[in-house]
């Protein structure tokens, strides 16, 4: 049983230690197919691919994280909220109707109602994100027990997460693909437990999100 005087210290440690992360390795790659650049009134939308048969949808959290990070900072750009965009353009970006390739884009953007709405939104670039984060490996064991005398855990857990995302960027003005950015991150998390479990979480998805958002921002705003 834990002496009651040490409990606050252990609880404090348990709350503090998750802030310390496990190790994450992130890589970003960029393929540019055309020149980019944005004017101050123009905006971008980041959409997760939700194609019907796929069972590997990009998590909402990742898409909103990329959007939020692209908006942030001194060099932030205007990013339209994904749900607001899908509602405003309904039903043309639903799983059943969304353009699969840039060749499908003219059919949509040449409709007068849609062209007017896109103009109203100031949309210049469409960013499609595919990919997800998976647990690729896990090991160890941890046992917890609760008795009338107290509770505690003992053991060691480790797991590896792998994030792999790719963003395709379409220019609405030209109707062409302008490039692709991939962001991959791998990290191992640990959780030793001697009475109190102490998680060392590798923020893999967050790392992939930050890398992708930074790269997308540079990619879209740097004229080349």
């Amino acid at each position: 049983m834990i002496p009651s005087a040490r409990l606050p210290a252990l609880v404090f440690a348990a709350l503090l230690l998750p802030l310390l992360g496990g190790c994450v390795t992130a890589t970003v790659q960029e393929v540019r197919e055309a020149d980019t650049g944005m004017e101050s009134h123009e905006s971008v939308v980041v959409l997760g691919r939700r194609t019907l048969p796929s069972n590997r949808e990009t998590e909402f959290g990742f898409v909103s994280c990329v959007s939020k990070n692209m908006r942030g900072g001194g060099d932030g750009i205007q990013v339209i909220d994904e749900q607001r965009f899908r509602d405003a353009m309904f039903p043309w970006f639903e799983p059943r109707t969304a353009p699969a390739n840039t060749s499908d884009l003219p059919e949509i953007i040449n409709q007068p109602e849609l062209a007017a709405r896109l103009e109203e939104l100031g949309l210049r670039y469409l960013v499609w994100i595919e990919g997800d984060t998976d647990r690729t490996d896990a090991g160890g064991s941890l046992t917890c027990s609760v008795t009338t005398a107290g509770a505690g855990c003992f053991g060691f857990l480790t797991w590896e997460n792998d994030s792999s995302y790719e963003a395709s960027v379409w220019d609405i003005r030209t109707g062409n693909s302008v490039g692709r950015i991939s962001s991959d991150a791998v990290g191992t998390s640990y959780m030793p437990a001697v009475v109190v479990p102490l998680p060392f979480i590798a923020r893999v998805r967050s790392s992939a999100c930050n890398s992708m958002a930074d790269q997308l921002k540079r990619f879209l705003t740097t004229e080349s």
Partner: peptide
Amino acid sequence: SVSVPPVLPVPLVE
């Protein structure tokens, strides 16, 4: 037990 919320968009068509 869920109820579908009446939060649905208006189609943008001719």
